[in-house]
Design a binder for these strands. Structure first.
Length: 410
DNA sequence: CGTCCACAGGAATGACGGGCGG
DNA sequence: CCGCCCGTCATTCCTGTGGACG
């Protein structure tokens, strides 16, 4: 009974004091606003490029570059959704397919997704890639339509699978009779062309669009627009707004990051029962986001990656080398009685941890004494300790003292 | 100025669990 | 149920290399 009362109070309190958010959804990054400040130029350009579709001809393939959070995806979706309504109005046969390559993960699943959107359902595994491609082509031709494919984060696909998929796609028009395909490729990486077959690249980038990062004042405008929709009036303080934009501007002008900061800052303020979002809430939010990111990453590591990390932790030096890690890793595997991976494999695991920002790895030459990676921890030791202590297998090893320190010292 | 360390990291290949069509 | 293919992880084999040492 008493408990019931407590909870009632909590909920009542929440409802009564939740004066912060008017609409939380507006700050999620999959939300596409009505207005995209500072992207008018790109919208206009992209619009002119795709406009021929309305006269039932194929539009040029387009390559869009820009860092994360510069509005590439938002602009593309915005323009295409307007194109779609126009096309309906004029009865133009056009279909769209949006595929995020990083989420989708493989050629097979990209083609499967494309097939879906022309109304062909494919089993989500089991067929050969060529088979799926053939079905897709057949289905597409039968649909008698202009087909616009958006391949978002295309660099993720190219880097680990090569450009076979793109090659097939760029050539597909030659074998289609009743349909036409245009490709919009979106990449976070400006150097993508280096990974591509020049023929593929040239046919893919009939048009190019570059998205520059936002600067602090632009980010400020974006946040301001968005905050009008998401927060009640007077909730967001000037200082908080400025700090959010400044922090995100420092980090490659990433609007997504700025919006995250703002949303979490709002949540922090809400939880504290504050009536306004202040600068301190933003600072808090920054820590919060980073902390969550790392903890989440640590928890989801595979056993061997955890062991690699634990090896670095156990060595407890300002920097260690691949060889040293491998020795300790070896001992740890012995402690657990499990098989160990090769050093080659370990090297890529280290690189993965580096990419996640958990370790920092740098190749250095020590001349006569070889060539290796210098590896440092990039996160706090206490954080590792906290997360691993609650891990069934790691907990026991967290205080492990390396046996074989100093094998060859210089 | 060549040598040679201690690895880096690419390429090819294999093992394996999941899942299909027939 | 079989044979085949998928994606993922891992191994094997390999060539490449910056620069202190001699």
């Amino acid at each position: 009974m008493v408990d019931q009362k407590i909870l009632d109070d909590v909920f009542e309190n929440f409802v009564n004091s939740a004066q912060i958010f008017k609409d939380r959804e507006v700050l999620r990054h999959d939300y596409i606003p009505e207005k995209l400040p500072h992207r008018e130029e790109q919208i206009r350009l992209l619009g002119t490029i795709v406009a021929p579709v309305l006269k039932v001809s194929r539009c040029s393939n387009i390559f869009i570059y820009g860092n994360t959070g510069t509005g590439k995806t938002a602009v593309t979706k915005y323009v295409l959704s307007h194109l779609e309504t126009k096309a309906k109005m004029y009865n133009v046969p056009v279909k769209f397919s949006y595929v995020n390559c990083r989420m989708t993960g493989s050629e097979y699943r990209v083609f499967a997704g494309l097939s879906q959107s022309v109304g062909i359902s494919v089993p989500f595994t089991g067929l050969s890639v060529d088979e799926v491609f053939d079905r897709f082509r057949a289905g597409l031709d039968a649909a008698k339509t202009i087909f616009i494919v958006v391949l978002d984060e295309i660099d993720a696909l190219i880097k680990n699978r090569g450009d076979k998929l793109l090659y097939e796609l760029t050539r597909i028009n030659e074998t289609l009779n009743k349909s036409k395909v245009s490709i919009i490729g979106i990449s976070n990486d400006l150097r993508l062309k280096e990974f591509l077959d020049p023929r593929v690249f040239s046919s893919l980038s009939e048009e190019e669009l570059v998205f520059r990062p936002y600067d602090a004042s632009e980010l400020r405008n974006i946040l301001l627009e968005r905050s009008k929709l998401s927060f009640y009036e007077g909730v967001l303080s000037e200082a908080a707004l400025n700090v959010c934009s400044a922090l995100a501007a420092a980090e490659h002008g990433d609007a997504r990051r700025a919006l995250d900061l703002l949303r979490v800052a709002g949540e922090v303020a809400e939880r504290q029962g504050a009536r306004m979002i202040l600068e301190e809430h933003v600072r808090e939010a920054e820590k919060h986001i980073e902390h969550n990111r790392v903890v989440e990453a640590l928890r989801n590591l595979t056993l061997h990656s955890k062991l690699v990390l634990l090896s670095v932790y156990s060595l407890n030096k300002s920097s260690v080398t691949t060889g040293e890690i491998y020795d300790i890793y070896n001992e740890l595997c012995g402690e657990l009685g499990i098989g160990l991976l090769t050093q080659r494999r370990l090297g890529t695991l280290i690189n993965e941890l580096d990419a996640m920002g958990i370790l920092n790895a740098k190749v250095v030459s020590m001349g006569r004494y070889g060539r290796t990676k210098k590896i440092r921890l990039e996160i706090s030791r206490t954080l590792i300790k906290d997360v691993f202590e609650s891990d069934s297998r790691m907990g026991r090893l967290i205080n492990y003292k390396p046996k074989s320190f100093q094998k060859h010292m210089h």
